[in-house]
Simulated assay, not measured.
Amino acid sequence: MDISKISTGIPGLDSMLQGGLIPGRVYLVKGAPGTGKTTLAMHFAMAGVANGENVLYVTLEEPAENLKVDMTRMGFNLRDPRFTLIDATPTAERYVLISDFFEEFAANIEKMADAIKRQFQERRYTRIVIDPITMLKMTATKETEYRKAFLSFVKSMIRLKTTVLLTSELERTDIEEYLVNGVIELKVFEVGGRLSRGIRITKLRGSGFDDAIRQYEITDHGMVVYHDRMVSLP
Rank of each mutant, 00 (worst) to 15 (best):
I3S: 12
S4G: 10
S4D: 13
K5A: 09
K5T: 10
I6H: 01
P11H: 08
P11R: 05
G12R: 06
L13E: 04
M16G: 03
I22F: 03
P23I: 08
P23C: 07
G24Y: 02
V26M: 01
Y27P: 02
L28G: 03
V29I: 09
K30Q: 11
K30H: 01
G31Y: 00
A32G: 08
P33L: 11
T39I: 15
M42H: 00
A45W: 00
N51A: 15
G52Y: 04
L56H: 04
Y57S: 06
V58I: 15
V58W: 02
T59S: 14
T59N: 02
L60T: 15
E62H: 05
D70K: 08
M71C: 07
T72I: 04
R73F: 12
M74C: 09
L78S: 04
R79I: 06
R79Y: 13
D80Q: 08
P81G: 08
L85C: 06
L85T: 02
A88L: 05
P90Q: 06
E93Q: 06
E93S: 12
V96D: 14
V96T: 10
L97E: 15
L97C: 04
I98P: 00
S99L: 04
D100K: 07
F101H: 09
E103S: 09
A106N: 15
A106G: 10
A107Y: 14
N108Y: 08
I109M: 05
K111S: 11
A115C: 08
R118I: 11
Q119T: 10
Q121L: 15
R123I: 07
R127L: 10
I128T: 06
P132S: 15
M135K: 10
L136V: 11
M138V: 11
A140V: 05
K142T: 12
E143H: 13
T144Y: 07
E145Q: 15
Y146S: 05
Y146L: 14
K148N: 12
F150S: 11
F150D: 07
L151N: 13
I158K: 11
L160K: 04
K161A: 08
V164K: 00
L165E: 03
L165R: 00
L166D: 05
L166K: 03
L170K: 09
E171G: 13
E177Y: 00
Y178L: 12
N181Y: 05
G182Q: 01
V183I: 03
V183R: 01
I184L: 07
K187G: 10
V188R: 10
V188Y: 09
E190H: 13
E190G: 06
L195H: 14
S196Y: 10
R197P: 03
G198E: 02
I201D: 00
I201L: 03
T202C: 04
T202S: 13
T202Y: 03
L204D: 04
G206N: 05
S207I: 07
F209M: 07
R214C: 08
R214H: 09
Y216E: 08
E217K: 06
T219P: 02
D220R: 09
H221V: 14
V224A: 14
V224G: 06
V225E: 02
V225K: 00
Y226M: 13
R229S: 15
V231D: 05
V231C: 09
S232V: 14
S232T: 14
